[in-house]
């Protein structure tokens, strides 16, 4: 079993690493959005030949926007979670210290006066732990939600390839767009997956 300090350390690292992974996801989502704009321009020039491509570009754009929104939400929650982690850590430390006072002062005339305070601190620690757990759960939920646009983007990329094959001389450019959406979505997928597994380590 991990020691308390080790567990704490890995919690702090987990929460901090979410921010890093998410900022990468953000970059990727913006790339997707750019790819969508590119695709739209190409499809426009290709005219009739790329008719099937137009709604796809709108859809890609929509997905990118949704992803960016979700990342913003998750970021906010991750920073809340960070605060709770810090606060829970403080409470744990205080609880440890007050237990030590009760032990060291067991022969002190007024040791009883500390019981209500030590009790309050223990209760608060319980509350903090509870809060931490529900915040971790909520964040895990949101991380699985953000997997949907990533998965959808990959499906769209596959469709785009089919549509691109109809586009004659624009085939190459549209294939490139499809390729970049696919790659971006894959990257996003791995990043979020990493986030989730480091979060899962935090589960108490």
């Amino acid at each position: 079993m991990k020691t308390n300090t080790e567990r704490k350390k890995s919690q702090f690292v987990s929460v901090a690493s979410i921010a890093t992974e998410l900022s990468d996801v953000m970059v990727v989502a913006k790339e997707i959005s750019l790819a969508a704009a590119n695709a739209k321009a190409i499809a426009y020039r290709a005219g009739e030949k790329a008719r099937g491509f137009q709604p796809i570009t709108d859809f890609i754009n929509e997905l990118a926007r949704e992803t960016i929104g979700l990342v913003n939400q998750i970021n906010e929650q991750a920073s809340e979670l960070y605060e709770t982690t810090v606060s829970e850590h403080r409470h744990e430390e205080a609880n440890r210290q007050f237990k030590a006072v009760l032990e060291l002062g067991s022969d002190a005339a007024y040791v009883d006066s500390l019981f209500p305070i030590a009790g309050r601190i223990e209760d608060e620690l319980g509350e903090k732990r509870h809060q931490l757990k529900s915040q971790v759960d909520r964040l895990l939920d949101q991380l699985s939600e953000i997997m949907h646009p990533a998965r959808a983007a990959r499906v769209i990329a596959a469709n785009s390839r089919i549509e691109a094959s109809q586009a004659g001389e624009f085939l190459q450019s549209l294939l490139t767009v499809a390729e970049s959406v696919d790659k971006a979505a894959e990257l996003m997928y791995t990043n979020v997956q990493r986030c989730r597994s480091s979060m899962a380590m935090m589960e108490l």
Binding site: F98, V101, L104, G105, A108, V111, D112, S113
Partner: peptide, 12 residues
């Protein structure tokens, strides 16, 4: 901890 424990010998 040692300080508060010591103080509790004198006062609540």
């Amino acid at each position: 901890a040692p300080m508060l424990a010591a103080a509790l010998h004198y006062a609540p």
